[in-house]
């Protein structure tokens, strides 16, 4: 009975949370405005005269000119890739804040995968050096001796814990 109540509450929470999230996000859906389209492209370009700001974030005349250029290119029907390519041709690949996914730049993109693979291999080699998972020596010999320390040995009355210890443990439970 109690379980079915818990399930009911959980179901209400899950559906309520999902519906609430959708309720918050749905009004914001819709096609991007022209300025948003411009900004989305400008965000991938650097402002040539600023310190580390994108053409979307910067407020310099140069950045404004770039945004105006993007807006007119978009109106002329150019694609995002074409506009980015045009800027890259004009200023060099340097202008792209998002390195292209080809050539030597590809290294940047696969860096996380390489890193994860390398770290994963290293760490698992470190903890699983010889012949996969094993137990430590003490436990193995203990198990061979048939004492309670061995994993897998049957819990019997030998595992009974002294009452004083139990009482003390209960203060930590």
């Amino acid at each position: 009975m109690r379980n079915s109540w818990a399930i009911l509450v959980a179901a209400v929470v899950v559906v309520g949370a999902g519906a609430a999230l959708a309720g918050v996000l749905r009004p914001l859906a819709g096609p991007p405005t022209p300025e948003e389209q411009v900004m989305a492209i400008a965000a991938d370009l650097r402002c040539p005269v600023c310190a580390g700001e994108s053409a979307a974030a910067a407020d310099t005349t140069q950045a404004q000119a770039m945004r105006a250029q993007i807006a007119s290119d978009l109106q002329a029907g150019m694609s995002r890739q074409a506009i980015l390519g045009q800027f890259a041709a004009q200023y060099g690949t340097w202008i792209l804040d998002r390195p292209p996914e080809r050539g030597a730049f590809l290294l940047l993109w696969i860096a996380p995968v390489l890193a994860a693979a390398g770290v994963g291999a290293g760490i698992f080699r470190l903890v699983l050096p010889r012949g996969g998972a094993g137990r430590d020596q003490a436990e193995r010999s203990a198990a061979a001796d048939g004492t309670a320390a061995g994993v897998g040995s049957e819990p019997g009355p030998a595992t009974a814990v002294s009452a004083a210890l139990r009482a003390r443990l209960s203060r930590f439970l």
């Binding site: 991938d44 994108s54 060099g92 340097w94 804040d97 390195p99 940047l108």
Partner: peptide, 10 residues
Amino acid sequence: GPTVSVGPPY
């Protein structure tokens, strides 16, 4: 070599 930019999109 040529300067490479890496920004928020990456």
